[in-house]
Design a protein around this nucleic acid. Structure first.
Lengths: 339, 339
DNA sequence: ATGAAAGCGCTAACAG
DNA sequence: CTGTTAGCGCTTTCAT
């Protein structure tokens, strides 16, 4: 380990004490006169002095570090947006982030918590990739915690506003003149079920918006799994069992991909013959032809919001119990036709 | 901040000194008799003692922390695989990771380095999302560094074995009886150019493998941008200007998506009429119909390898200059027909 | 306006 | 076999 330049070195070089160096460098409205401060800064710069954050942390008891625990970074294509939001938010606030992954394993989860506590993080963000309700292991220290895309007893959450999104989606179709609409992805879970907190809300909103418009789905296909193959089969089923469907609302983009495929196989043009709309706005929504109109899950913003709310908590501000809800913007592309 | 349980507390409770506690808890082949050790462990457990890693780091000078600097986590769909590999590798070795993002901004890059140095990380991994050559700001401490998916003067790299991949890809086509092959994505950059280190190699390998097979491309379309639209236009161009093409080799999956689209629009079946093969294996390769045969970029493994090599460096082992090359496995799906 | 000195929680010599 | 003690590099109170 190369000899590190320490504060004492700077002090000696500047001909002052370490106390003076400390004060001079931590620009807080100090009692140090500008001349001295300048002398110190010059010495520090010349020596390439870099404060030892570990020592500072030990001394002050706050680490300027936040911990991020995610259940799975790899699997979902949204994960990186959330990570990015957190990294950006933290950097802006002068915090660094230490990141861990647990992969739905309770033991790993608990271990991650311990690690972060032992490292003295100032707060913890827990990110769920599939919006769920979690039980958080008891903390040994009294640390602020914010959950992103999930909920936990007594902890603050940042969630996508699924209810609003469902409404907007249906309205987009209806206001474009669609009346004969089919739904793919009806989920057996009800609102209030805990496995996933978002999906039931999304569906409930869709139902509410439909009845508000005085409409009923021409055809519905139920499925818990939202993958392309399901969308494909579902579309065929819709086409074979109903008449004059002008729009298909898919519960997510992956389902929509399957819809595209099936429509093409049946020689139906999107959106001329049938319009398609869905949720998530993952990468492929942009790539597919025609580009898919969809409701974007605001993962990036959720990450940023989580950081800023966590830091509020760290600073001792209190925060309201109810989750912070973030809007899913409607991304209008060209898969929905005006009738 | 809730009163933290300290080593002194444990010592008092167990009726021994802190030195004994320290030794007893750090299970290293200790000189402490089992009875005492057990007593200490019991006391620690009862109090919920959690060692303060910050203090330990300050004292020992090694943090069991590695820093990860990535240029952009969000943009590419591979990023998360790399992150996952790093997180897994680090966890397995008992290290934690602090993560930063720089977004191609030199100032942010330098700042990230300083932050990590100041935090006392034991080593740094620098991950590039588009394989490039980078200049690393001078370090103030003598830290081990490993580059993933890029190269830098005097630093060890972990790279995908593009040359081998190019060879395998061509052979897959040739061994399936294809002779009239078109190429999309010829890049103007030559091997040795520094902007991107992988691409020229991939292409060179393709060329070498073709001549080895005594073949020449029936048609080539050049492009630096590898997006679906380009693949689409290129395919049309190929179809209009050449005869009897049985396979199209696309330089990446996104191009291949465009190829799919164009082929469909011309009523050509994949792979019955023309086979398609490409590189990367991003998400959509699995989603597209028929599923795309492609060479998988091993980002996850690259991340893991980077960690294990970095930790070797940390432990003082030396490592050979030449980059570690990781194989891109051939993912055989159904877009290539046997003739 | 500045310096001396204590101490954050831990580990590792060194004594005993 | 175990305890005492001296720091790691910093911040901060208290003197001066």
């Amino acid at each position: 380990m190369a000899k590190r330049v320490t504060m004492a070195d700077v002090a000696k070089k500047a001909g002052v004490s370490t106390a003076t160096v400390s004060l001079a460098l931590s620009s807080t409205s100090s009692r140090i006169p500008e001349v001295t401060a300048e002398k110190v800064r010059a010495a520090a710069k010349e020596l390439g002095y870099l404060p030892d954050v570990t020592a500072r942390t030990l001394r002050t008891g706050n680490s300027q570090l936040i911990g991020f625990i995610s259940d799975e970074v790899t699997v979902t294509r949204f994960a990186s947006a959330m990570v990015r939001g957190i990294l950006d938010g933290a950097e802006r606030a002068g915090y660094d982030v230490i990141m861990t992954e647990t992969g739905h394993d309770t033991a790993r989860f608990e271990k991650a918590i311990r690690v972060l506590e032992a490292r003295g993080v100032d707060g913890i963000i827990i990110g769920m990739m599939a919006s769920r309700s979690v039980r958080i292991p008891k903390l040994r220290r009294q640390l602020p915690v914010v959950i992103v895309n999930g909920i936990a007893e007594g902890r603050h959450s940042v969630l996508p506003d699924e209810y609003r999104a469902g409404t907007v989606a249906v309205n987009e179709l209806v206001s474009n003149g669609h009346r004969r609409i089919a739904l793919i992805g009806r989920h057996p879970l009800q609102r209030g079920d805990s496995f996933t907190v978002n999906i039931p809300v999304r569906l409930a909103a869709i139902d509410d918006a439909m009845s508000e418009a005085g409409l009923e789905f021409v055809y519905e296909v139920q499925s818990e799994v939202w993958e392309p193959e399901v969308g494909y089969d579902a579309t065929l089923e819709i086409l074979d069992n109903s008449e004059g469907v002008t729009a298909i609302l898919a519960a997510n983009d992956r389902l929509a991909t399957g819809v595209y495929q099936a429509l093409k196989d049946r020689n139906l043009k999107i959106p001329a013959d049938v319009s398609v709309m869905s949720f998530d706005d993952e990468d492929l929504a942009r790539i597919v032809r025609p580009p898919l109109t969809t409701m974007r899950l605001p993962y990036r913003e959720m990450g940023e919001t989580a950081v800023s709310e966590l830091l509020d908590l760290v600073k001792g501000k209190s925060i309201e119990e109810s989750p912070t809800l973030l809007t899913l913007p409607l991304i209008r592309r060209t898969s929905v036709a005006k009738l």
